[in-house]
Nucleic acid binder design. Structure first.
Lengths: 218, 218, 218, 218
DNA sequence: GATGAATGAGCCTTCATTCAT
DNA sequence: GATGAATGAAGGCTCATTCAT
């Protein structure tokens, strides 16, 4: 029973922590980094003022955990996408793109927060690290997938590393469009832009509509 | 004589304003947006605390003018690059790339500031507008130049709009690398990355070294 | 127990608020409106600087609450005086005068503060309202009491409304004397001035010493 | 010619000083004491920022001169009224009342300024002095005039000193009404209130309409 | 004599953090 | 474990005053 109570307490504790991180994301998205105060965050999470320091020691630590969670969510999303995808590089590339534009990670709110952290990254080493590894992990998988795609066709002249980097950059550029000009942003058109880029580079495997079915060949 | 006096005063006034904007850029680059205070800025500019409000009314207005100047500097840079370039689209594309990696606009400091503003853009409408137009103006010229390049060769299957966007995104991604990982960044290699992207898309006109001389054709 | 705790906290809270208002009155009385800063007020109240904003949101709101309390204290004073007085108009008029010169409300400090607010009344609508209602409430009761006195005697030719207003004005004038020339001010003499005014208007019921006993008549 | 130039300069100087005092009055009337800054004053007077200190040394000195001018204007007004009046006390009393409600001195603006200074009087000795003498000079003449009126009739039981003081207080109360409730204020009705007070005290010489013609008696 | 840029002290306010209850 | 009053440092801003031009 004591154990149960302890478990319940732990759950409660974690729930409060999660609530606070969610509230932090919401606040940064709405009011920006500069206007995000612990009072707003605690009010939004429905807890008392002093509780944030109790759970996270300092505001800075709360912010770092928030960034880390955001980063983890993102990585988890594309990892799962890869796991669920068929075992060929083209499908995997498609899965990565699908994942990156899934509302789960690609919402105006989350992207605004991501850019907010990026904006402070230069002057806060911890942010720098998280942002670097965020970029790094994704570009690595993107690169290797593009490499595998390149191996499928007649792409000797294609620089798959640069193609991968350009694809990553393109996705980022579309995210930024969602943040700055949400009205012109369109989730489906964004994917098409990515496919068109792939069609420019891997014309045998992609066109504007997405991957070109390769079964005819076999 | 009175006119001269007025001129001298005006010059002085403008010089002070410029100094303050420069100091603001330096401060944001070094300490970040959140840690940029008017005291630091005024100290850096070597003037008294109250002078900022005297000249710019409020901190926010100083920040906006700073962002605008940054935006203007950037646009002026690539406009001049275009003006100075030969009158063929390939040279112009090269000029745009050269301009974007020229230390004048592509310094770690300036890019950090640009990203700092971008980070607050979501929650401050004025920043949003300036950032939008910054993106917009550049992508427009990039697109039309790529279109002209596409017209030079056998590029029917190439989507030049997406190619242009990808190039812009690539440049931005390299800038971000300069900001987050200055040690791995290399100005020349960055241009080569861009050329490689162009080589992927316009293989008749670009290779990793840059533009392919076309005189053989004539 | 929780309730007790809450009560204790609430008491504490209210005590702090009261202390701050008292300190505000003291400060305005001593240094004047213009020189009353939150630092002085908080120091006088023995609390930290930021607590004022915590409890009153802004300096302006603290000032308004201070004025309101002053107004309430004053009204409470004469209301109690009326309650405690005998049930005849002459005794009531005497009670009102006694109340107005009671040190509880008629201290140099409080009058200085009252005049300080009056001085800013024109340019701050909230002050205007409080000052208006202060004046209004008192003049209403003064008027009706004078009316009742007038009905007691042979005062057909007497304008009791004007007599009441003149009495109120006289009291104010004596208050002002306390503020500007405290050395010539004398509490007892001030009441005599009021009685003399009443003697001028209601000679059958008042003389310089106060009310004339009317039992002979019965 | 040099003298003429000097004179012209002196005139100009005085004009500027007068403009600044006028602007000060306007500013205090509109924005209150607390919000009256030298910048507003100089802007209102149409001169440069630094000129106030040049002409008045300090803000405080400008304020004192403003108060003094207001006081002088007021005294000049009732002195002239007395000079122009017939040589009997009743006419003189009427003249004093007329003067006190003449727009020249009894405007909402000027009264607001007068009360603004009064509000700071307690904490600034110089203001105290000016306000004291303002009160004193007027109450002295009021008292002697009332004394002379009292001598005209059967007023043995009348305390003319208190009657005079009440009249002065009444005028002040009506002024305050103009400041706080300009909509209910009425210049003519105000005078009638004063006459009614006098009718209460000197029924043989005043009624609600004003002085009672005494020629029938002779 | 006049201007207005520049100074710097001081004010109100905000806010992360602490701690008694 | 949770609350919220209290702290105190720091920030943006105002403004009287100074002074070079």
């Amino acid at each position: 029973m004591a154990a149960k109570q302890a478990t319940s307490r732990l759950k409660r504790r974690d729930q409060t922590r999660r609530d606070l991180i969610t509230a932090t994301i919401d606040s940064i998205a709405k009011d920006g980094f500069a206007e995000t105060t612990l009072e707003k965050v605690s009010k939004r999470a429905g807890v008392s003022r002093g509780l944030v320091n109790f759970h996270f020691i300092s505001k800075e630590k709360l912010l770092i955990e928030t960034l880390e969670q955001l980063s983890e969510e993102y990585a988890a999303s594309w990892r799962k996408a890869l796991d669920d995808a068929d075992d060929d590089p083209v499908s995997q590339l498609v899965a990565l793109i699908e994942s990156d534009f899934h509302p789960r990670v690609c919402s105006r709110k989350k992207i605004a927060v991501w850019y907010a952290f990026l904006g402070e990254a230069r002057s806060r080493p911890t942010y720098t690290k998280v942002c670097q590894s965020w970029d790094k992990r994704f570009s690595t998988v993107m690169e290797s997938t593009c490499k595998n795609v390149a191996a499928l066709g007649d792409y000797d002249h294609v620089d798959h590393v640069v193609a991968a980097r350009a694809l990553g950059a393109l996705i980022d550029s579309l995210w930024r469009e969602l943040m700055l000009s949400p009205k012109t942003f369109d989730r489906e058109k964004s994917k098409i832009v990515c496919f068109r880029h792939l069609a420019n580079v891997f014309p045998q495997h992609f066109n504007a509509a997405g991957p070109i079915p390769q079964n005819a060949k076999e």
